[in-house]
Design a protein around this nucleic acid. Structure first.
Lengths: 234, 234
DNA sequence: ACCTCCAATTTTGCATTCAAAACCGGATGT
DNA sequence: ACATCCGGTTTTGAATGCAAAATTGGAGGT
């Protein structure tokens, strides 16, 4: 180990940590895809994206390859890449897997979550209520997502969290299509109340059931929206 | 070599679509990592790997980025990449997630699997028995893996299959460490018998329970081996 | 001997270049 | 009119080049 205290090097560590370009790029593209700004089936033209991002093709191509293994992008050999089309079957499969993960997360969270984490989830819940009260759908969605992610994280299983987050990115693209009725919205908020209370009580069985029901409703809503948009496209 | 035959060969060869280099490379590297030929924490030197694979750095770097999002490789900014170290905690987390996926797969497989798929799994089971009878551990492992994968695939959920396969790659790296006792090996074979019979009977509840127990044994065996190797390294 | 500093070398990050495949649009033949 | 062929253009795939960061090895100081 040697001397830990550096003599003349009392200088403050430079906080300016330059992120690799491919990381910057992948975040940018992932956001654009999830936001729908890059719509499903859109062709990713390397030249155009390079100009928009102000970088060369090398880091862009690296980012695209990474997005492909995340499943947000599809590689067509010799023909570039497209934003993965939204297929109802694929979304249904993804949601089924996410359900299994949520169930496991609920169980683990009841066993492992510390009170601070639960308190934070409760705080986020109230923030979500505020947006719901104001009828602010975008804000509601944001905190909704955050709450689900925090419950997953409360499991303490890092692999579970990463897997869930990755699958979730794919599903989030479909969320704008799901035009929530006021009734369904209100019901979802009530479901969240119950989920929170089950977690606080560390009632794993009840939490798992509630998460499963909540997800089932989400599946129904998303699938309905997808069917509708598919019908409109045809 | 007749001219006509050669022409024919050339035409056929030309029709075989050349895979992108990064795909070739990612498969090569993934195999080497899973086989343990590239051991955990090994530094990936681009120049060396380029020479070994006979390619330039561009496709190699693309492949490394993809392996990083698969979790088999860790990127150290400005310092290249290393094979992801085997951490007991990470493997335990991964196995927990795989357990949840197997459980879901068992349920879906009982509902969706066609008889041909089950017959194929049974055939693989007998091949596995043959290797077990001969005491051929490597051959046994191969068919063991294949059977588990086929059960997952029998779910009919593509996302589930992909997710499972990806997580599995990480765990397979640890399998050589798990020095199976003959008793445990025999027990594992018996468990497989039961799993197969539950699937054939489409008894979802029993199948889920058996898969969970089977996995629990695997977890115990892998974790014991990891603890042991960690102790040896210290 | 140990630590620190510094130049030389290596290695990575990114840009650029070159080659091959796909795409486009008009001319040609049926 | 329609399909197809062909040349040029665009776009992707892969190699190479160049600059910045990290590593190495050794000289000098304590």
């Amino acid at each position: 180990m040697g001397t830990i205290e550096n003599l003349g090097q009392a200088r403050i560590e430079r906080r300016i940590e330059r992120r690799p370009l491919h990381e910057e790029v992948i975040d940018q593209l992932r956001d654009r895809i999830v936001q729908g700004e890059l719509a499903p089936s859109t062709r990713l033209n390397e030249r155009v994206l390079c100009e928009q991002l102000g970088i060369s093709r090398t880091p862009l191509r690296e980012a695209i390859k990474m997005l492909a293994t995340e499943g947000l992008v599809e590689l067509l050999p010799n023909r570039g890449a497209i934003v993965t089309p939204l297929k109802a079957a694929n979304i249904a499969d993804t949601l089924a897997v996410m359900g299994a993960l949520e169930s496991l997360a609920g169980e683990l969270a009841c066993a492992n979550a510390n009170e601070a984490a639960i308190a934070e989830i409760r705080a986020l819940h109230f923030e979500m209520l505020a947006h719901h009260a104001r009828g602010d759908l975008a804000g509601y969605f944001k905190f909704n997502q955050l709450i689900h992610l925090r419950i997953i994280e409360a499991s303490g299983n890092q692999v579970l969290t990463n897997t869930y987050r990755q699958l979730n990115a794919n599903v989030r693209r479909a969320r704008y299509m799901a035009n929530l009725s006021q009734e369904r919205w209100d019901a979802a908020v009530r479901e969240h109340e119950e989920i929170l209370s089950a977690l606080a009580a560390r009632d794993a069985a009840r939490l798992k059931r509630l998460l499963a029901e909540h997800l089932a409703h989400k599946v129904a809503s998303v699938m309905a929206a997808l069917e509708q948009s598919a019908a409109a496209a045809a």
